[in-house]
Write a protein that binds this DNA or RNA. Sequence first.
RNA 1: GGAGAGAUGGCUGAGUGGCUUAAAGCACACGCCUGGAAAGCGUGAGUGGGCUUAAACCCCACCCUGGGUUCAAAUCCCAGUCUCUCCGCCA
Length: 433
Amino acid sequence: MLDIKLIRERPDFVRERLAARGAGDEAHIDELLKLDEQRRKLLGEVEALKAQRKRVSKEIGALMGQKKIEEAEAKKKETGDLGDRITVLDKQAEEAEAARNQLMLRLPNLPHESVPVGKTAEDNPVVRVHGEKPAFDFKPKSHVELCESLRLVDFTRAVNLSGSGFVLYTHWGAKLERALIQFMLDLHTSEHGYTEVSPPFMVGPQCLEGVGQFPKFADQYYAVREGLDDSTLGKLYLIPTAETPVANIHRGELLKESELPIRYCAYTPCFRGEAGAAGVGTRGMIRVHQFDKVELVGIVKPEDGYAEHEKMVTYAERVLQMMGLHYRVVLLCTGDMGFAAAKTYDLEVWAPGQGSYLEVSSVSNCEDFQARRMNLRFKGGTGDNRFPHVLNGSGTALARLFVALVETYQQADGSLVVPKALQAYLKTERIQA
RNA sequence: GGAGAGAUGGCUGAGUGGCUUAAAGCACACGCCUGGAAAGCGUGAGUGGGCUUAAACCCCACCCUGGGUUCAAAUCCCAGUCUCUCCGCCA
């Protein structure tokens, strides 16, 4: 959520920043300001009436104490219809405030000034490249073919279980998935200073609202119903990312400055409806309804937000480096950024069998946008309450990383070489049929 | 699913209709004390909103949520949510 005071004081700046996203959100600012003005006007009127009521009530109390019943009764008449008028105005003020807040919840974050203005992914500058595309003296196969011949994934039976868009890892495939999760958690906790947490995989709607997934994108997530009781529908949702529960851990809290920075990492599965995208997807594991991910979340003082952001990107990169994969880092342009982000880097890993880069990590600084939504604050040195910056980054997503690994490490004989960093976890140097 | 207890500031916890402007303690900030610290003593300080160049002052709201009674509600009434304890079922 944006700061209403900023919108009031610098509406043109806010309009300009929203317009940079190219989604037309700046059009709502006029209406927002109107509702805000209305609310403040009504508030002024109703508060004056309440002050009057309060004053007279006190006088009545004093008179009653002195047994001056008649005078008290006269005062009661004086308050007369005050209560009714207050009720009416109160309701109007509440309505204006509710309408204003609804609009506020649907406005995306303002892009940071260092973010290039652009419309689509084509406008995202590449900020650095690591390694080179691996050379093959044979035609590299797709992960679909490799997974089937090595029995790493059973695509056919996965459909029997859950329909398209789900993966059944088998045999060495299941072990590889588990090894990757453990490798990443170990790396971030032992070398990058993160505290491991293992959150619920279902959360209430307030958590989705807190990170900006609700209310605007409510159609993209899985709502859960308990048994056959329809009244329970929507009380819980399957998490689309660990960011949803983990960033909300301290929702509503007033932290001490000394508690910051907070750095959490978590493994969770991620569930995404990808509404309207049915049938997309190449056969395989590039776009699925459920995938595993290790996520990094940071809660830091605002002045540390962007230094933390740069650091977090390098932590995600470290995973790919240790896997020996070729990747590039891109800076998302204004038009390609997510709703809550002020600045985002994506990590794209090379998949030789696809002949393309796959997005395996997205690292964002949401500044105080999410902290406002979840009312997460910390007490600063001078005793004032401030909103921290909240950051999240994949470190990294599986499924696509799995694809890149399988396609990168395939050998002419159809086997896979296991990258050094994973050998201790898998207890083998090679996977073969 | 059954029975009971509870929800008050950053935390603990008093408070049964108007001397509550929410006691007290802890934690916090500042001062005194000290070679320095701790302890002790003193002072300050809840949150959000409206006003304000800024600060102070002033005003309103807030004691789980939503209704209701009343001139007046943390306090009384109704409904709901959540938490805890015990029992049942369960991996």
